[in-house]
Design a protein around this nucleic acid. Sequence first.
DNA 1: GCGACAG
DNA 2: ATCTTGTCGC
Length: 225
Amino acid sequence: MKHYSIHTFPIKSEYKSKLQEELRSQIKEVSYEGLPRVICGIDLAYHEDKAVAVLLIMDHQTKVIKEVVHHVDIVEEPYVPGMLAFRELPLILRAWEKLSIEPDVVFFDGNGMLHPIRMGIATHASFFLQKPTIGVAKTYLLGTHGELGNDQGDYQYIYDKGECIGAVVRTQTEVKPVYVSVGNQMTLDDAIRLSMEQVGKESRLPEIVRQADIWTRKLRRELLE
DNA sequence: GCGACAG
DNA sequence: ATCTTGTCGC
C-alpha cells in the first residue's frame, strides 16, 4: 500500500477530490481482533487564524490518561463540509509525531464513512496514521435511518444510496444521540461496541472524545488567547 | 434550481 | 467550530 504522509499537504483544490477517490478504494472493513489496550482521541480548537490540535492517549480499560501532546499552527484551509480532513489533518499529523505511546485505535471528533463519498476525516486520517479509526460526530450530516429508541444502547443503522455507512447511537437514556461510523480497519459493530465501552456516566460522548474536548479548550485558552 | 451541510 | 444569555441542579 502506498504510504501517505504530511508531505501530501498542502494540496491544490483540483486534486482534493482525486485524493479522496484514490483513498476510498482502499477502505478495509475487517473485524477488529481483540480489545484495544491504549486508544487515542483527537480534537481541535480555533482562535482567529490559529488552531491547536490535541492528541490524548488513554488506557481503554481504566480510562486513565497516559499522554497528551499538541501542535499549534496557522490554519489556511477553510471549513468545507465533506472536506474537513484537508483543514485539520496537517496539524494532527504534526502532533502525531510528538507521541511517544503508540495507540491501538484512534477516535475522531467527526465522521468516518458517514460521508457523501465515505471519506470523512476518520477514514481519511487512517491512511496517514496506519491505525484502525472510529468517527464520533455530535451532529447529523446525511443519510436516513429508522426511528431511534430512547434507552441507553439503542441504535439505528444509517443508510445512503443503499449502503450502510454508520449508526445513530443513544449513548445515554433520553439524551441526544451521537453519530458513530467506521473510520477504517474495523466493522461498524466494532465501532459501536468500542464507542459504547467508552461512554461514562457524565456525558453522551465516549470518554476519550470528551477528554480530548476538555483538553483542547484548556490549551486554546492557554496557548491561543 | 434549491436547500442542507461533520468541525 | 465560536459566541452568548438564561436556567437548572449538585
